[in-house]
Design a protein around this nucleic acid. Structure first.
Ligand SMILES: [Zn+2]
Ligand SMILES: [Zn+2]
Ligand SMILES: [Zn+2]
Ligand SMILES: [Zn+2]
Lengths: 172, 172
DNA sequence: GATATAAAGTTATAATATAACAATTATTAC
DNA sequence: GTAATAATTGTTATATTATAACTTTATATC
């Protein structure tokens, strides 16, 4: 089941399936899913909170890899090319793709309180954007659709919640 | 008429009306439309190409103002607060708002060839996003909707066109 | 005109991202 | 299996974007 801001879920299986998907996708694309690429994807999947590139460096160092910025940016670039990771431009941060292999648009709902983000795919939204572009004679190459606000959970609770970075995290 | 990627238009009147609108809006909000704020808005409106903050600094210096980064960032922040300028996160760049005073979402179509950007407002798109968020129990605070591709003009012409930065520029 | 407030000047630095080249590792061709 | 090739990673340096902190100047209020 897709993550929808729920607090409790088996996030271990989120990570596990993300890595399994990645393995398959890289194989299909004839691309090498190297240790550092796997590690970066695993780190990105530690939570449903978009993480900055520099936030990953300590763990990369910890794991014994070179932890200069190019290391993580290269891995992130590769993962984006394979459709395994998305960059959230409004946050300068990266998040694992929830539906790897998806075509076209996906839209992120980003909670500015708990900092969790959910990737949604909406046919209605996609067709609205398609129509809009067609009207203008515009040919779409990529989209950055980021909606910032308060998630269901943070709306109903008065207490300020902050996304946990530990392995078991709200997800769905 | 709103800019729709047409090559020829009276861009001088784009600038003029943007400045007149700004003057009115600042007055309505009881905010000071100072010289530096006016200058930055005017510079932003030199074209329909989103411009980086640092691209504005030389002209600010030229005009005799302090040209350290905080100068331009403060002006841009003010202009964003007044709804006169938008930041395009995927480009780290800023563009004048085409419909100052508009409520809620607007969406940018950004040509990666000529580099021009058009701000569009679509009720269908807005309602798709509203529905999507409502379904998730998500309360929207702001949106970053950026669609990158090729504009009508660049699709039909084989030659690479680059946005002109001079005062008279494609607009609409 | 004195006081408070807002804006702009100034210096320094933080945060994010990439260029360029060397070393290593994996793949391919023989 | 070894040499040649290509891909990946290591390493150093630097570019780009943005903000913090404090000072000075201008504006508004009394
Ligand atoms: Zn995705
Ligand atoms: Zn999860
Ligand atoms: Zn606008
Ligand atoms: Zn174009």
């Amino acid at each position: 089941m897709a993550f929808t801001f729920q607090s409790k879920h088996d996030h271990g299986s989120c990570i596990k399936s993300a890595l399994a998907n990645a393995e398959q996708i890289c194989a299909d694309h004839n691309q090498r899913f190297t240790k550092i690429r796997r590690l970066v994807l695993e780190l990105i999947w530690q939570s449903h909170k978009p993480l900055g590139a520099y936030e990953l460096l300590p763990a990369i160092k910890q794991a014994g890899f070179n932890s200069a910025p190019p290391t993580v940016y290269r891995a992130l670039e590769f993962l984006q090319e394979q459709g395994l990771v998305h960059r959230i431009s409004s946050l300068n941060a990266f998040i694992g793709c929830s539906h790897p292999g998806h075509q076209g648009s996906s839209c992120f709902l980003i909670c500015d309180q708990c900092q969790l983000a959910v990737e949604v795919e909406s046919p209605v939204l996609a067709s609205a954007i398609g129509d809009l572009s067609a009207e203008m004679g515009f040919v779409i190459e990529r989209e950055h659709l980021e909606i910032v606000g308060k998630c269901r959970h943070c709306c109903s609770s008065k207490t300020k919640e902050v996304a946990n970075k530990s392995p078991n995290i709200p997800c769905g």
